[in-house]
Design a binder for these strands. Structure first.
Lengths: 238, 238
DNA sequence: CGACATGGTGTACGCCGTACACCTAGAGAG
DNA sequence: CTCTCTAGGTGTACGGCGTACACCATGTCG
């Protein structure tokens, strides 16, 4: 209690959560060993007493973020909700709920996508998540091959990534002049991007609803998967 | 013709294609300004006479790769193939063909995925590709909103990426011992990864067919999109 | 012939990850 | 109570990175 100006001793969890906090605020690029060290009031090499190298730091960050929410296990949801949903559809809401939970944490930690994408080793939290998701399919009687393909079809969508390599190309409100120029060369792109070009000529800035897009795509996939399951999909014979 | 030992003068195309070649052989990480310079027998700073900075180099590489194949425009395919496919389905095969073409070039340039993902500016070839793809939908009478959602639903799949954040977790042939350990903690994951664990106990190493997985997922999405189009999907009123 | 643009050079700066040798403080054993 | 051991923090150094800036070489054109 006396003169506790002394800095608390470092440990792995403190290092990891400091890294997560830093990435949350300043982005993944700000997370360098040196920067993180000064953030913790410590010399860069001190970190190496707690993580083997930067790769392991990133792995740890991913695990921290991923372990944040999915502790709750929403499996077998609405089995007994007396409405239209039958027990048959339990897997669907379980998968959907879990993925949307992942999406929420991904929105809280925008760096997670890039971090996860560059990881090559699969850390515990990743495996836990995957296993749980796959479990929902299998518990509903999905064959292993269909489960396998379903997971592939969902792809990185399982992490809640909005995989917008198709970005709306012009974040700044579409300055009419340059938009006109763009529209000349890429009429289709402009039409699909800024969905609402009204009769009065005003452009309702695309500002497309990411959450809607995500659920739209997710449901499209889940519908397709459900249909295959219902009709007893079998792998094509070789 | 005399003593032409003199090195050819550099220019932007030469720089870009050298970068592409280097990335093809040694991966994207090998493409540093310094390394690329020595590859071209030139001092690092010389490159800056041809590209503004590294970002622009990457942009250029993407454009080179993307401009490689889709010059062919397979739109309106099998309109007049007297078989089961109706003209109504023209968009489907056009979209499918174009995406599979993109996939082929992505397989030829494995670095393309990461490069495209880190790009923030949309370069000409990217816009051309997007515009063409969107054009296929619109030409088939897709509403702009549905086209928009369809593009989002396809997501980065339009580039032919196999978006395997769900990787089979163990590239090395599944050493039985560690596999057993893994199976204990993650039974579902192991079951779905190594699809074929036969009755005789032998494990047919997953070695899952990427091309099949890709087309499976793509067709799932296209089926869903086709259904929505057929039944005249309308955006939910706000 | 001289000006000028184009393109290649050399040096330098501030970042990065991290190897390696060192020091320090506290805990447990004698 | 000291002695030793160890976990954790330090300092220095190296080789890589992107790139700013001043400079020089070469060809073209007036």
């Amino acid at each position: 209690m006396a003169d506790q100006t002394r800095r608390e001793r470092l440990n792995r969890p403190r290092v990891l959560s400091a890294a997560v906090a830093l990435a949350d605020v300043e982005g993944l690029d700000a997370v360098s060993m040196r920067r993180l060290a000064t953030e913790l009031g410590v010399v860069p090499m001190a970190l190496y007493k707690h993580v083997a190298d930067k790769d392991e730091l990133l792995d740890g960050m991913v695990d921290v973020a991923l372990g944040e929410v999915p502790a709750e296990i929403p499996d077998r949801a609405q089995d007994d909700a007396g409405d239209g949903t039958s027990a048959e559809d339990g897997w669907r809401s379980a998968v959907r709920t879990r993925i949307l939970a992942a999406r929420r944490i991904q929105l809280r930690h925008p760096w997670l996508r890039r971090a996860l994408e560059t990881r090559t080793t699969r850390t515990p939290a990743v495996l836990v998540y995957l296993d749980a998701l796959i479990g929902s399919f299998r518990a509903a009687g999905f064959s292993d091959p269909l489960t396998h393909h379903a997971m592939h079809a969902l792809g990185s969508r399982i992490w809640g990534f909005t995989q917008d390599l198709f970005e709306d190309a012009n974040q700044p409100p579409p300055d009419p002049a340059s938009l006109a120029a763009l529209a000349q060369h890429f009429p289709n792109l402009v039409a699909a991007a800024s969905v609402a070009v009204h009769d009065d000529g005003t452009v309702v800035a695309s500002g497309c609803d990411d959450q809607f897009e995500f659920e739209f795509a997710l449901d499209l996939l889940l519908d397709g998967i459900a249909a295959l399951h219902r009709q007893g999909w079998l792998p094509p014979r070789r």
